Amino acid sequence: MKIVCAPDSFKGSVTAAEAAAAMAAGVRETIPAAEVVELPFADGGEGTLEALLAAWGRTPETVDTVDALGRPVQARYGLSPDGRTAVIEAAEANGLPQVSDVPLQPLRADTYGVGIIARHVLEAGAEEILLCIGGSATTDAGTGMLCALGAEFHDHDGAPAPPGGAGLGEITQVDLSGVDPRAHSIRWRIAVDVENPLTGDNGAAAVFGPQKGAHEQDIAELDRGLTQLARVMADSAGVPAQHYLETPGFGAAGGIPLGLVSVFGAEVVPGSAMVSEVLGLQEVLADADLVLTGEGRLDSQSLGGKVVDAVASRAPASCGVVVLAGAVQLSPAQCREAGITAAFSVAAGPAELAELQRGAGQLIHDAAAHACGLFAFPRPRLD
């Protein structure tokens, strides 16, 4: 048998690579003769960098940059084995954890540090950037990142607009003459795991602003600013403003897609689809007999372009799909409809979350061994 282990991370417990290794060990214990493939996976959000580096057998590069408030930090990025593809997790520079030691500043926080990482990637000679943008503390539509790459944003008097979301509403002019030409020549792909538009009741500020510290007045200001910038960028690009305001996914990570799509023609793609392509998931599963996947919680959101959905939708009909999760909240009928053969909780019994997290690796190992027992024939007998 060929058995593929392609899980997401179990957040707060184990990385995708650790989960894949635990599953693989459980498989080998039960079916020693099986061909086992470990393929750590991610959906374009947190953990994507680690998953891709693990699959590539690469270690991360480190660069000095700044966090969302302009304070010095170190950030990681990854390069593919041939050096042509770079993976940047924006949250390495503009993430909420880096600024959790001070009161959140939703109007001030910006993406300048992400642009510094991109500059280093260009220096490294990459031909493509895969930008993963979840977990941000910013709502600046990528303007800070663009400034780090040479763009300038001015108000009606020609003065530089303030950084962060607070300055978006003042922008009336965009000067792209100083943008690094290499940034125009490479391919940009932005991995998103949400479909929110840029503005409105379901937009970047209204939905994600509160978790970044934005109050009602801040949300209104940010929404107005995003609307203003979308109109300015649309005029510059020669497209209708509504295209930027209403396109699904443009509200991800405080509107980062707006800046990069309008200036560089970046592609906005579902994160799991992008990772699937980069890792060659379809090809790996083509001759598989069984695939084990999983995440912390299997629920309705798992079926909306997340890792489990990506794996189940790409597995051939002859391949069993088994999900191992901390909690299983889908019925057997829902699983079957989603192309999932079976789903099992890794919890051995009632326990506190902290206890389950501490023992997650062993629990995943044991659950994988139990699940593979269904495929191990003949049944072992005691003499």
Rank of each mutant, 00 (worst) to 15 (best):
G238F: 04
V194F: 03
L229P: 05
P210G: 04
P197S: 06
I219Y: 00
R182V: 01
T227S: 12
G238L: 06
G238T: 11
H215P: 03
W188Y: 13
G200V: 00
Q211E: 14
L198E: 08
W188E: 03
G200P: 00
D235E: 11
R224L: 11
D201M: 13
W188A: 06
L222P: 00
N196L: 11
H215Q: 13
D235N: 14
G209R: 03
G213R: 02
P197F: 02
A191L: 04
S236P: 00
D223T: 03
V192I: 05
H184M: 04
L198F: 13
D223R: 00
G209V: 00
W188I: 02
R187M: 06
G225Q: 13
V194K: 00
A234K: 07
D180K: 02
L229T: 08
A237K: 15
D201F: 12
S185D: 15
F208Y: 15
L198T: 03
R231M: 07
V192S: 02
T199M: 11
R224V: 05
G225D: 01
N202E: 15
R231P: 10
L198I: 11
S236C: 05
R189G: 04
I219R: 00
F208P: 02
G238Y: 04
Q211G: 03
R224Q: 11
G209Q: 04
P181V: 08
A214E: 11
A214T: 00
G200Q: 02
E195R: 15
P210W: 04
H184V: 06
T227E: 13
D223Y: 01
V207H: 04
L226Y: 01
R224F: 05
T227P: 07
A205I: 08
A237E: 02
K212T: 13
A214V: 00
A183V: 09
M233N: 08
E221G: 00
A204C: 14
I190P: 15
L222C: 07
A183I: 14
